[in-house]
Design a binder for these strands. Structure first.
Length: 582
RNA sequence: CGGGGCGUGGCUCAGCCUGGUAGAGCGCACGGUUCGGGACCGUGAGGUCGGAGGUUCGAAUCCUCUCGCCCCGACCA
């Protein structure tokens, strides 16, 4: 393409609406433009990039036996009612009515549509396994679209579905997909981790989440430095060094602690109670089975609570810290002097039922110090077993960087931010059961098809690729998804010699099978260099003064280094570089 | 849905507090000088100040309502 006629509206300044790096660069490089919150148009550069990503997805899906479909984005409510998700999903689904008043929706995903095809057409185990996929637009009315292409309301997704006659088949299909996913992300130049994840409302037994490390991400991930342990912080655990407590007094002893409000206060002189010798008592109000209930969360003094773990542990749909009045009403003291010893009695006195959940890290601890439920007083010599009525032991603690890996002996955990880029699920028979997709087995029995579902967000890959591959000057596209392999920059378009040499190079490179962008604009060289860096083409050939010596410059965008190359060698040179991986 | 911020030429912003009829830089058009890391000079085009209502002789500016966008939280297969 000739830049002079190609639409690449680059921006010199950061747009006011963009916060994260990938968002700024996508806009500045003329890749996309925003239409509305969470809705973006792909400009020509963006379309080329998306097509590259989609082609990689297609190749790797085909490589594991995938067959590409193209399904409707507009669905009748009926199939969603059959699967039960019409009512299970809330405002996140775009719903509408047709002219006759029939309920319809815009597809957020395609389990229902694929299952509807499967139930009509798949009859026998002999037809299985099937691996079906499509690359299609999806609609989700996100409560909060954000960060450019990271959280969108309409986006492109590669979604694949596998159909097996039994669970063993699904296990194999699942592994095939997981391996394909590894290749896809590696090919796209995205560093990723695979983490255990919960299936959520998708249903099913097992799921793996693929995440890309970036500070723009929304999840926290813990990975082991030496083994392959990786988990979302909502699930991650770690190994703690065992603490041997001294035998304390036969019963807890109360002592005055005027002005002491925090764990740190009590750790200082004159008290000198180490944080890990203290019990942290947090009062929450949890919604359990629709009812609000007070719950005490107990942790070691130096351990932070993870609210999602906490909510999961007690089966709550929501948790919130209790208000100061609620705390005083419940325990008779204010935050800073709270404890679980005798807390149940205190609560009963006000006719409240209190649940006490303690973190595993407190198991078997003795001679601990905690609040006395009396302002400005604490008690010491508390033995968990003996002195506190714990209803439930659970993993409530937030794992931190540097702690020991729970799976291997030598590794430590590293915690970082990441974004979800893919998710694979073993669905099982959730959809085949509810929608009646059955096949006959070899011995003539009718069984529900065992399904898997596998999704990758195209925009998420693009976002992750930029987040992980950029510098102060702009994007640095991985070669696999770059909109152009090479850009030919003619430093001065009015110089006939340069122009001719550039044009010839443009033709020659294209003939060699490369995708070439020719910067033939009537701009100063500096502007062209800045723009080339910004849009991130991996290689730039500068056609300038050295053309007198039959020489051009080859600039490596990533290494930021250039070398002189003779005109006779340049095509071969670039061909070798640009078509090599990564 | 809760909290915060912002809507003024294509872009980035000033003006608003203290009402007097709209500005700068970039970009764009034309002319000239430049020409290897976002040049310079001159001339010019381009804005219902998000929208509606109100107060006022007069509203970008004050008041009310409303729409949109961004950020934090909640939420999120």
């Amino acid at each position: 393409m000739r830049w002079s006629q190609y639409f690449i509206p680059t921006l010199r300044e950061d747009p006011a609406d963009a916060e994260v790096i990938s968002h700024k660069l996508l806009l500045r490089a003329g890749v996309v433009r925003q239409l509305s919150a969470g809705i973006y148009s792909y400009l020509p550069l963006g379309q080329r990039i998306a097509l590259k990503v989609m082609q990689i997805l297609r190749e790797e899906m085909n490589a594991v036996g995938g067959q590409e479909f193209y399904l409707p984005a507009l669905h009748p409510a009926e199939i969603w009612q059959e699967s039960g998700r019409w009512s299970a999903i809330g405002d996140e689904m775009f719903r509408l009515k047709d002219r006759k008043g029939m309920d319809m929706c815009l597809g957020m995903t395609h389990e229902e549509v694929f299952t509807a095809i499967a139930r009509n057409e798949l009859r026998s185990y002999k037809q299985l396994p099937q691996v079906w996929y499509q690359i299609q637009i999806k609609f989700r009315d996100e409560p909060r679209p954000k960060s450019g292409l990271m959280r969108l309301r309409t986006f492109i997704m590669k979604d694949a579905y596998t159909f097996d006659v039994d669970w063993e088949g699904l296990d194999k299909s699942f592994i095939d997909q997981r391996e394909a996913y590894k290749k896809i992300f590696a090919r796209c130049g995205v560093q990723f981790s695979i983490v255990e994840a919960s299936s959520g409302s998708m249903g099913g037994s097992e799921s793996n989440e693929f995440v890309a490390r970036t500070d723009a991400g929304e999840d926290f991930i813990a990975t082991c430095t030496s083994c392959d342990y990786a988990a979302n912080l909502e699930k991650a655990t770690s190994r703690l060094p065992k603490i041997e407590d001294e035998t304390g007094p036969d019963a807890p002893e109360e002592f005055p602690t005027p002005g002491v409000r925090t764990i740190e206060d009590l750790a200082r002189a004159p008290y000198l109670v180490a944080a890990n010798q203290q019990i942290k008592t947090l009062v929450y109000v949890a919604t359990i089975e629709g009812e609000s209930r007070p719950v005490l969360a107990l942790l070691r003094g130096d351990h932070p609570l993870h609210e999602v773990k906490f909510a999961d542990a007690i089966g709550a749909t929501a948790v919130r810290p209790a208000h100061p009045e609620e705390i005083r009403d419940l325990l008779g003291a204010s935050a800073g002097s709270l404890g679980a010893v005798n807390a149940k009695e205190n609560a009963r006195a006000t006719k409240q039922q209190l649940i006490i959940v303690a973190d595993q890290g407190l198991k078997d601890r003795r001679n601990m110090t905690t609040g006395a439920n009396k302002d400005d007083h604490h008690i010491r010599g508390v033995n968990l077993e003996r002195d506190i009525e714990v209803d439930q032991w659970a993993d409530l603690r937030t794992v931190e960087s540097g702690e020991a890996c729970p799976r291997c002996d030598s590794g430590t955990l590293e915690v970082f931010k990441a974004m979800e880029i893919g998710h694979i699920f073993k669905l099982g028979t959730k959809y085949s059961d509810s929608m009646g997709a059955h096949v006959l087995t070899a011995d003539g029995k009718s069984v529900p098809i065992v399904m898997g579902s596998y999704g990758i967000g195209v925009e998420r890959i693009i976002t992750a690729a930029i987040e992980q591959n950029h510098d102060a000057d702009g994007i640095i596209w991985p070669k696999s998804i770059t909109p152009f392999d090479v850009i030919v920059t003619i430093t001065n378009i009015k110089d006939e010699k340069l122009r001719e040499a550039g044009e010839k190079l443009y033709q020659d490179l294209q003939r060699a099978g490369l995708e070439v962008l020719l910067d033939d604009r009537d701009e100063r060289a500096g502007v062209k260099f800045k723009d080339a860096d910004l849009i991130g083409i991996p290689y730039r050939i500068t056609v300038g003064k050295k053309i007198a010596d039959e020489t051009v410059e080859l600039f490596d965008r990533r290494a930021k280094q250039s070398e002189d190359v003779k005109l006779v060698d340049i095509v071969k040179r670039v061909q070798t570089l640009a078509l090599s991986q990564p």
